[in-house]
Design a protein around this nucleic acid. Structure first.
Lengths: 306, 306
DNA sequence: ACGATCCATACAGCGAGAGTATCAATGGTG
DNA sequence: CACCATTGATACTCTCGCTGTATGGATCGT
C-alpha cells in the first residue's frame, strides 16, 4: 500500500462537500471524468467504499464521513506546514499574533512590551480578525500565537495557558429596564433579544447575526439586542451603554493559545511574557485603553465552506 | 502556487532526518538525483531555502527545521486520516482502546461494561502497549481512544477528560531500608537507583531502561532499582514488594484521551462511560483486579525514528 | 596531487493524470 | 408510456512530470 496524496484528499473533500461530481470538478478546476477516476482509485487503495453513488445522488458512507473529517484536518496541517516554513524563511521572520478587537482585555500592549524585552524577540505583527476566525488562522499557519476565549473558541489542537478569568456582564442601553440594577441573573434576561455569533449554528431563529464587537455595540445602542460579554468589554462602551454584572452567568477565560507541540522559541517567549503580564495585573484592575497602534493586517475570510 | 504533496514532504523529512541525500534516497527507495530535484523544486515552490548544502555537508535552515517539525505532524495527520477511514469502512467497525498494562487503575473492566450498555456501542478492542506508545497509536489513527497519564504522557493534540488523581507511592522490596516507613519524602530517595523510561532522553547515566511495568517490578524485586509509581500500581504487587506513600511526590492523573475534534459518536459514548465510572468509584477505593479478558492485539512498535 | 565522497546536471523513457467524446442509468414530464 | 434531461462511468489519446543512468564539479583527506 502506497502513500495517500494530498491531491487525492483534496479531490475527495471537494466531492464529499458538494455531493456532486460535476460541481466538485468545476470547483477544483478539472473535468469530471478524472475526478471520478481519482475517487475510485482512492477507494481501491483504501479498500473501502467512501461514497454511495447512483446516477441521481451521491451520499457519504461512514468511512467517507470519517475521511472527510480527518482529511480536512490533514489538509489543514499540510497547508500549515508549508506556510510556516515559508514564513520562517523570510528574511525578517515575524511573530504573528492574532486576537479579536477588544479580546485582549487590555493586556496586549503590556504583553507586547514585555515580549519585546525578551531576549531574541522578533518583530510582532498583530492581526485583528473576526470572531471565530482566530482558531482558523492559528490552525492553517497564518498566525503563530493568539489570544482566545474559553469556552467560546474551540481550543482543540492547541496548547494553551490561562491568562485571566472574566466575569460576565450584561451590556444594555442606558434607558433599558435593567440598566439600573446592581446585578442581574440569567433568568432576568428571558425574552431579551440576544445576538447570534458566526460560531453558532443557524437555528432558524431571527436573531441578528453580528460579526464583531463594534457591530454588536451598535445594535445594542439601537436597542435591537442586548448581550452578555466578558467584563473587559466595558472598556469600549460609549456613554449610551452600561454594564451590569450577571451573577450566575458563565465566566470566560482569556487564554494564550498556540499550535500543539510547537517548537518555536519565539512562541515560548511570547507565552512567558503574556503569563507574566497576566499575573502582574491580576488584581490591578484598572483596564487600560486597548488601543493597538501597530499595523493591522486585514485577514481575508476564507473559512471552510459548509 | 499549487499544492504541497505528501510525497514531497516525505522526501524532505527523510533528507532532513538523515542530513544526507544518498542515505535518504536509499531509505525512501529511489535514486539520489530525483531526490535532489524534488528538494530543489520544493524550495522553489515555497520560495525558501530549506537546506544549506555543500558537497560535504547538509544542514537545516530555520525554515527547514520548521518544515521538518510541521511536516512530520502533517504526514501523521494524513496517515491517520487514511487509517481511520479504512477502519471505519470495515464490515464490523470497532473501537480501539489503548492503555498500558496496569495503567487503567482497575477501572477498565468497569468502563468496558458501562460502555457496552451505551446505546449503539461498538465492539471494543483493547490494546495494551508499551510506555509512551499510546500517544503515537492515538495520533496515527491506529487507536480511537486511550487511557493516558498526566503529566507523563504528551497530551498535545488530544482532547482529554480527567478520570482520577493518583498519589505517588514508592515501590520497594520487602527488606528495603524504607519498606517499613509510614511514608517517605522525595529527599529520602537520594541515591536510590531510579529506572529510565523510554520517554526520557538518554542522559548518559547508567540507569536501567525499563519498557513496561512487569519488567520494572522484576527489577525492583531483584533490588536493582526502586520506583515511584501511581498508587494504582499497588494492585499488581507480588508479596516481595511493598508500597510506601511519597508525601511530597508529584501526583499524576489518569485521563481518557482522544484525537482532537473527533466526530466519533462511539468515542463520545466511551468518554461518557469512563467519566461515569470514575465518578462512581471516586471514594469506593477497592481496586478490583485489572484483568482484561478481552482479546489483546499485539501492536507492532513502529515509533518514528530519531 | 590524487582519489574518494557527495550533491548537481543532462538526457531519455515511462507512467500517471487530464481532456474529449460517449455510454448507461435514473427520474421527471407531457 | 415514450421522451428527454441529468449525472456518473468508461474508452481512448495525449502530455507532463517523475524516475533512473550516466556524468560533471566541488570539497576534504592522505
Amino acid at each position: 500500500m502506497d502513500r495517500l496524496e494530498t491531491r487525492e484528499l483534496h479531490y475527495f473533500v471537494a466531492v464529499a462537500e458538494e455531493l456532486h461530481f460535476g460541481r466538485a470538478a468545476r470547483r477544483i478546476g478539472i473535468a469530471q471524468p478524472p475526478l471520478s477516476r481519482a475517487i475510485r482509485q482512492l477507494e481501491r487503495r483504501l479498500g473501502v467504499r467512501l461514497l454511495d453513488r447512483t446516477s441521481r445522488k451521491v451520499e457519504l458512507t461512514p468511512a467517507g464521513a470519517t475521511l472527510l473529517h480527518e482529511g480536512r484536518k490533514a489538509l489543514e496541517a499540510v497547508a500549515a506546514a508549508g506556510r510556516r516554513a515559508r514564513r520562517m524563511g523570510r528574511d525578517e521572520p515575524r511573530l504573528v499574533v492574532v486576537t479579536k478587537p477588544g479580546g485582549d482585555g487590555g493586556m496586549l500592549p503590556d504583553i507586547l512590551d514585555a515580549y519585546a524585552r525578551e531576549p531574541g524577540a522578533l518583530p510582532v505583527e498583530p492581526v485583528l480578525c473576526g470572531v471565530g476566525e482566530q482558531a482558523a488562522l492559528l490552525r492553517d499557519g497564518r498566525a503563530d500565537v493568539g489570544l482566545l476565549h474559553r469556552p467560546y473558541d474551540d481550543m482543540s489542537g492547541f496548547d494553551t495557558e490561562d491568562l485571566r478569568i472574566e466575569r460576565p456582564v450584561l451590556i444594555v442601553p442606558r434607558q433599558h429596564r435593567l440598566a439600573g440594577r446592581e446585578s442581574v441573573r440569567m433568568r432576568d434576561l428571558e425574552g431579551e433579544p440576544m445576538p447570534r455569533w458566526p460560531n453558532m449554528p443557524d437555528d432558524g431563529s431571527d436573531r441578528p447575526l453580528v460579526r464583531d464587537a463594534a457591530q454588536l455595540l451598535g445594535l445594542i445602542t439601537l436597542g435591537r439586542v442586548v448581550a452578555v460579554l466578558p467584563e473587559s468589554a466595558q472598556t469600549d462602551l460609549n456613554r449610551e451603554l452600561v454594564a451590569v454584572p450577571v451573577s450566575d452567568g458563565q465566566s470566560s477565560t482569556i487564554v494564550v493559545a498556540w499550535p500543539e507541540r510547537s517548537s518555536s522559541l519565539a512562541v515560548a517567549a511570547f507565552v512567558r511574557a503574556a503569563v507574566a503580564v497576566a499575573e502582574s495585573t491580576v488584581d490591578d484592575h484598572e483596564p487600560s485603553v486597548a488601543t493597538i497602534s501597530a499595523s493591522v493586517s486585514v485577514s481575508s475570510s476564507r473559512a471552510s465552506r459548509a
